[in-house]
Amino acid sequence: MSASDLQSAPSAQEAAPPRPAWQVLLIRPETMTLALLVLAVFAGAWLSPFFLDISYILRSFTLYAEFAIVALVLTMVIIAGEIDLSPAANMALSACVFAWLQQAGLPVPAAVAVGLAAGLAMGAFNGLMVIGLQLPSIIVTIGTLTLYRGLAQIIAGDKSIRVPEWFIGVDKIMVLGVPLPVVIFIVLALALGFLLSRTIVGRQIYQIGTNEVAARHAGIRSARIKFGLFLAVGLVSATAGMMTASRLGSVRYDLGLGGELQMVLMAMLGGTYIFGGRGTILGTFLAAWLLVLVSTGMIVANVLPAVQLVVLGILLVVSIIATNFIYSRTQR
């Protein structure tokens, strides 16, 4: 092909007609999540008659709500082209800081505040390493994952620290018949969904994840936005840590152990693209429910916890393969 052919090519070709709306909707990864969700409901109902009890599912959701809340923010981090594997360790450390301080005699509200500040500081540290020192976030957060949980182990030792009686039971508080953690999850999902899809900052997050160099040339303050995202993950993780402490009634260094897998899994199942630039809060929202249905379904069906580990691992791998496949077929 000669140079003149190349030049005339765009004008000579008609633009491809836009896809029909139903096709656009059908090939979105969130649709896959929704289909799986419906499938999970039917499968669960077939396995056990108790399964369709909505209050049972809501109560089960409180077991996963902390991870789900963090997964919402993690989705934005992944869309921005970074990753954070340390939130689960962050949850453990901030909860340990809180429990240790209140045991040492600090009033509970002050201890909570220090715990949240610790979470924020951990997020800031991640952000500093990734953005300030330009290190890859994958390996930095593997390091901080080990570090934070190790520090929690130093603070709490091998013992579990009890929290005061009145602090226990955030999952038992009902708002209009829905447990408080679930309400927090839904409200946060709405807020972040609005932020990501309807505000300038939200759209800029997508641009950073799609092509950071181009985004910076377009005047987007990518460093500032990404640092803000790491801070947000830190703060939300600490909040989730407090909620877990309240739900369990005691804190140990192994609180939320392995939670990073479930958080990443929720984001991946929801169709967030692992290389950044694509994904929605809606997807993660649906995926969180899907994961809860699958997990409780396995509990109802008396599946061993070990098999659940296997299923989660397989789900993670299958969901990235599927998402990659969908995105490679549809250049949005």
Partner: peptide, 23 residues
Amino acid sequence: LFRLPAIIVTLGTLSLYRGLTFI
């Protein structure tokens, strides 16, 4: 074969192989 990032795949198999060990 699927052009996936190693970190996510091995995070999944970390859990998968551990579960298989239990089984």
